[in-house]
Simulated assay, not measured.
Amino acid sequence: MGEVYRLAEQKDAEQLLDITYRAYQLIRELGLHWPAANADLALVEDNISTNECYVLEVSGTIIATITLSKEEEVKKLSSLPFIKWFAVSPEYSNKGYGGKLLDWVEEHIILGQLGSPEVTLATAKKHPWLVEMYERRGYERFLELDLQNGDGIMYLLKKTLINKPHFIQRG
């Protein structure tokens, strides 16, 4: 059947809860207070209805998810589109599927539909590999904050999705 990229539906909520819970095990072990890490079915259903929750299906099975936030509190930090709740089913991690879904959302949704040349996300300084992973994907830190919730330093990262034109000065 191949790969299908689509918006999540309420009928996907139980599957998304399972994927997210298993994918966020390290987040819980690090003591981070991310809503997705301890979500219940009601919170996943709310995420699907409140935001734009996208999934990647392979052969009819959802294996990755990412959310484009529509929540107002995020807009206080940045006017740019903000992605969150990024998770890949552990059996499919490190196989490139998460990167494919992130690329698809950046290209087709954020740049293509919204027309935004940039996107933001947040992650914790104390996570052992997320900051570096996003930086390898072209994200750059632009804000450091401590929400005083026990998570420690959080980074807001931004990525430019289109190349800015280079002006050549001719002499």
Rank of each mutant, 00 (worst) to 15 (best):
I63N: 00
K84E: 15
A23L: 13
V58M: 15
L7M: 09
D18M: 07
I63C: 02
I168F: 04
Y155S: 07
I48F: 05
C53D: 05
F142E: 04
L80D: 10
Q25K: 15
L32P: 04
A36C: 10
H166P: 01
I27C: 13
R170P: 03
C53H: 13
L43E: 12
K11S: 02
P35V: 12
E71I: 10
G152Q: 09
Q15M: 11
L143A: 11
W85E: 09
N38S: 13
F142V: 07
L26W: 06
G152A: 09
L17W: 00
V58S: 15
T123K: 02
K95C: 10
E140D: 14
T123S: 04
P90Q: 06
D103N: 08
L121T: 01
I153T: 03
V74R: 14
D40I: 01
L102S: 06
Y21A: 04
V88A: 05
S89R: 00
K75S: 10
L26E: 11
N94W: 06
R137C: 00
P165E: 10
L143C: 01
V55G: 02
E57W: 04
R28P: 08
A122E: 14
G138Q: 03
G98E: 00
W104N: 02
S89D: 12
H33T: 13
L130P: 00
T67G: 11
E45Q: 13
Y54M: 04
Q148R: 11
L102Q: 02
M133A: 15
N47C: 14
K159T: 05
P81S: 03
Y134N: 11
P165C: 06
I62R: 04
V131T: 05
Q10K: 08
E73Q: 06
G96V: 01
M154L: 05
Q113P: 09
V74D: 08
G96Y: 03
G138T: 02
S78G: 08
N149T: 06
R170F: 06
I153K: 03
V55M: 08
N94D: 14
E91M: 07
L56G: 10
Y24H: 15
R28Y: 00
G98P: 13
K159S: 07
K11I: 10
Y92A: 02
T20N: 12
W85K: 13
P35C: 15
V105N: 06
I162D: 05
L147W: 08
P117L: 15
P117D: 14
D40R: 00
